[in-house]
Design a protein around this nucleic acid. Structure first.
Lengths: 210, 210
DNA sequence: GTCTATAACGAGATAGAC
DNA sequence: GTCTATCTCGTTATAGAC
């Protein structure tokens, strides 16, 4: 077995262990068991457990973001973005990847190494959303109201938090609520659009936001 | 020193330790050190560390929700609710209470005892929001669009997740984005209100939501 | 690169004196 | 109720044979 194989097994095993046991149940021993690899090899290849987890987070995000790229590229309206987001969320939630990211994000609070890897992983997701928002938002009446960067970050982080709900009850239909709100304003007729524009102008005259 | 004093010290110490060291750095020993209490007393008074944390989460939520109750009771519009929510969030985030809840929520994934206490704690927050929503939402054009329960849960959970962002970068201005969106639709004039109502009727005819 | 063995330590929890 | 002392186990990490 080559070194690259071992590294790969460990990276996969690390994510699988967090998925199955949570971060609290994730140790060098439990990862090695899941990966089917000797425990000492973790330290040979990655120096520390946290460094392995950070690298695993980065790689996992890359591999999961990639298949959505083509789909996101075809999105031209905010409504389509929300539909794509709904599908993405359903898939990643079902696979437990959202929960994994949330666990690592929680662990990042006390581990600088983990913080760096998790930031990179979450950044890949929000960058993807941000790209689409930059393209789609200007066509919407909501342009100028929503900031692409802040919105993408907020949505990504909120979804990570939402996935933590799994253990304590049913996950609330957050996207459904958001979708309803956005769909109401977005995709309006010309007359309504002018009304919204007027209202927007009034709002930015007397801004309530910081 | 009475037993009630010791219990109180441990409950406070448990929260303080999670706040300062994260859940990963929270142990019977570290809690006892923070509380200035002998380590063995944790098990005498609470049986297990997780049971102490669960009880601490419940109590902390009670004590933090309470001071906002009067403020929330005066809220009559959605815009006011958002303003109150913004103030609440700023305060709890600054105190680190949001991060504590998020840490416990993450730990709840692998500890049934912790899950129960965390569910109760988070439930107190979302119940408060839900109460206001039930009173305020019917007056808004958004009535019938947003479900009070799902919205309250989604907002609470999303904010917990948002607080996890602290360790890996600046917290995005999520409430600002949401506020802009809601403010746009809410608090409309009679003419615009009719337009929104028409659009709502159209949406519910061909529902996109599950 | 991979293995076994083990060092060094902190964890949860308990026994038993006071 | 509170304390000290301790048991037992799992943890990260390393040394050294192969």
């Amino acid at each position: 077995m080559t070194a690259a194989d071992t590294r790969r097994k460990l990276l996969d095993g690390a994510i699988d262990t967090v998925r199955a046991e949570g971060l609290a149940g994730t140790s060098a021993r439990s990862i090695a068991r899941t990966a089917g690899v000797n425990q000492a090899l973790i330290f040979y290849h990655f120096d520390t457990v946290d460094a392995l987890l950070a690298e695993a987070a980065r790689r996992a995000a890359q591999e999961r973001v990639e298949p959505y790229r083509a789909r996101f590229a075809t999105v031209t309206t905010l409504a389509e973005l929300l539909a794509a987001g709904r599908a993405l969320w359903a898939e990643e939630e079902a696979r437990g990847n959202a929960a994994v990211l949330a666990q690592l994000l929680a662990g990042a609070q006390t581990s600088p190494a983990l913080a760096e890897g998790t930031a990179a992983a979450l950044g890949l997701w929000s960058a993807e959303v941000e790209t689409v928002l930059r393209r789609v938002l200007p066509e919407s009446p909501l342009a100028g109201l929503l900031d692409p960067v802040a919105t993408a970050q907020a949505v990504s982080a909120a979804f990570a938090g939402l996935s933590l709900f799994g253990a304590i009850g049913a996950t609330p239909d957050a996207l459904g609520q958001l979708e309803a709100l956005v769909a109401l304003v977005d995709d309006l007729g010309p007359l309504e659009r002018r009304l919204v524009a007027r209202r927007l102008a009034r709002m930015t005259d007397t801004p309530k936001r910081s």
